[in-house]
Amino acid sequence: MALTRRQVENIANLARLEITEEEIPAFVENLSGIIDLVDQLNAAQTDHVEPMAHPLNMVQPLRDDRVTEIDERDVFQANASQLESGLYLVPKVIE
């Protein structure tokens, strides 16, 4: 199945990736190739196979509800570009 230009642009937008007009045809081709591969997988007979949510055949271990993390804000914020009153500052996200 071939993806359309629009679909590729939409995927790029959802992933917040900036791609140029010139790059689009290559992405259309590459991503369509991946879809083709998935289509091949889809053709396999899996009616009697239980869907797998994880490649490891293990179950999720549970953690005790205890607070062990300490406040390391200063360390974490050392590489933030803009801070104020302990907050990370980012471009305005609401109009």
Binding site: P61, L62, R73, G86
Partner: peptide, 30 residues
């Protein structure tokens, strides 16, 4: 394993996992 206490100073209860740093893994609270 960071605290969920309401009303703390901003970002003092946000650890590497909460901050989404690369390489960290979530471990589910029982």
């Amino acid at each position: 394993a960071a605290s969920t206490q309401f009303g703390a100073e901003p970002n003092t209860q946000a650890c590497l996992v909460d901050l989404g740093y690369p390489g960290v893994l979530p471990v589910l609270n029982g």
